[in-house]
Design a protein around this nucleic acid. Structure first.
Lengths: 145, 145
DNA sequence: AATTTGACTTAGAATTATTCTAATTCATCT
DNA sequence: AGATGAATTAGAATAATTCTAAGTCAAATT
């Protein structure tokens, strides 16, 4: 059974503590699942993966843990087109690419400052604290991995 | 009971015809509702507004009409954070601003070419056919209208 | 060390936006 | 007028998520 590395565990504990919440085995395991495979899994997928490491965990707990991780700032929710919410531990500003064919979501790194720069198009009355950029399309042939 | 203007009716008929569908009173009324108040209503809201003009219409028909309008290219769906889908007859490329306080969604016009330019950040293997840009935050004081 | 406290976990029920089903209505074509 | 197929309708079904209420557990207090 895969465990969380020392550094990640530290990160988790600190962030949870900072938001007045405890590190628990369930939360550690769910966080580990997200870190191990950064393919934007849905809650269902997180549940399946977590269950294989901790067979007694329940769906409700997975939702609770994910919510806890999001509220502590360690994980971001990615919503695309009313599909089930996906979860992403990539905290650096980045865009997403959604493949219409496979339904997969990819992180797209963006040059530093690009996301912030986008707020320039906003008239002054709009005070944005977050920017979301999503591309949709398909992968060039031979890049389906 | 408000009716659709000649020009809008023409637009509707042409677009529907072009996608092999018929213009019907229900579709005209739903389209009129969207054109009259461009505040990104949800299906529920469209239903309520349409019902006041055409009391016999059903929710299923509203969903069907909205889907028809979307498929014919006259209307776009706007999805924000797993909230109910909103509908928007603004076909020009634009961004959205989502107010955390009121939940309202505003169109943000962007300079010509801006949206297309964004695809420059995409590595070559990603072929985007649409770009979505959403800001989230709050309105500066005194701009709550 | 036992007790209390409150946070956490759990199973299952409830919610809700949306889609589906099957039956009718309606317009157009012969 | 009758046939054909599209459009509309009411209500059932679906599915992701949230809620509820009961049980568990760890830390704090006695």
């Amino acid at each position: 059974m895969k465990r969380l590395g020392q550094e990640d565990k530290e990160t988790l504990t600190t962030a949870l503590d900072h938001s007045g919440q405890r590190a628990t085995p369930q939360r550690e395991t769910v966080f580990g699942v997200l870190l191990d495979q950064r393919d934007h899994p849905t809650a269902d997928e997180v549940y399946a993966r977590t269950k294989s490491r901790m067979p007694t965990i329940s769906m409700a707990t997975v939702y609770n843990c994910l919510e806890t991780l999001v509220s502590s700032g360690l994980v971001k929710q990615v919503n695309i087109e009313r599909e089930p919410t996906r979860y992403c531990p990539n905290l650096a500003p980045h865009a997403h690419f959604h493949c219409r064919e496979t339904g997969r979501v990819y992180d797209v790194p963006v040059p530093a400052g690009t996301m912030e720069k986008l707020t320039d198009v906003l008239p002054g009355k709009y005070q944005a604290d977050s920017v979301e950029l999503v591309f949709r399309g398909h992968l060039a042939k031979g890049n389906s991995k």
